[in-house]
Design a protein around this nucleic acid. Structure first.
Lengths: 144, 144
DNA sequence: TCTTGACTTAAAGTGCACTCGAAGGTGTTT
DNA sequence: AAACACCTTCGAGTGCACTTTAAGTCAAGA
């Protein structure tokens, strides 16, 4: 479990990013690599964790520019902790809103599938339009 | 409640797509509009429902090309119902997988926020790394 | 009459995040 | 010696879904 070192090709497979992307991220300041005597990049366990983490952030919808800002703040030290926290909080809120929206769209999709199923096995009147079918799910009164 | 007719400008506001996009969608075969004597497009309630529906599909991650295929199938009539159903089923499965992934990323994000909070109010040891902090949530055995 | 809003085609531009290729170099392995 | 993996800069290409512009026409309303 010593601090194994990985060159870019191996590291690339470990983290699931192409070597192109790794160099690109480094250009962008998202990753810092170390170099051996010949100028060849190498990475350690720490870097695996770091890349894993930024991929989680990206996975929640954070864009590269914001990710860059986050990294810059981190480099400035503890004085920026609340700012970083707030940034992640906003990212979280946005992601939760995205999920809620997705689920709302999904609900209609699922009903359309049900509607198709009803058509196929004739449990839904052949003449009923999907729009009419959908209506029945609207609690006409409390339509929160 | 007669069949009100909307010209593209008004319709655009109703459905939340720019007039550019509406014409673009029409080019792409996603929307069909009617024309008055002067060749000016108009839309009806039906079109509002249709656009609403394709926006739900898009909202679940369906790409324009697939949406086009869906519309083509629809135009072919009832014989394509199962194919359309299966298409929506796949879209649904994909969307649910996306949500699951998003939630997985979100979980880490939330823990990072908690970790920041712990740092700020000193309920987490100042020297504890986030990676170590994260570990405690891994039910080392059944790590489903 | 002038403004507004519509129409056409075709092409170019935008934003994002890569992704690739050229062209030339170094060091290690077979 | 050749193959391989790495290095550099930098510019161009990709994919997607719009978005805008150009340049010209037409018709209804104030």
């Amino acid at each position: 479990m010593a601090d194994k070192q990985y060159r870019i090709g191996e590291f690339s497979k470990l983290v699931g990013l192409s070597t192109y992307t790794l160099r690109y991220y480094e250009d962008q300041g998202l990753i810092v690599s170390q170099r051996d005597g010949n100028g060849v990049r190498y990475y350690t366990e720490n870097d695996i964790q770091w890349v894993g983490f930024i991929l989680h952030l990206k996975g929640t919808g954070l864009r590269l520019n914001d990710l860059k800002r986050y990294v810059r703040l981190r480099a400035e030290g503890d004085s920026t902790i609340t700012e970083r926290r707030d940034m992640l909080q906003k990212t979280k809120d946005d992601a939760e809103a995205d999920i809620a929206e997705l689920q709302m769209h999904l609900k209609v999709l699922i009903r359309k599938i049900d509607w198709y199923d009803g058509k196929v096995d004739h449990t839904i009147d052949d003449s009923e339009s999907f729009h009419d079918y959908l209506q029945q799910f609207n609690d006409t009164k409390e339509n929160k």
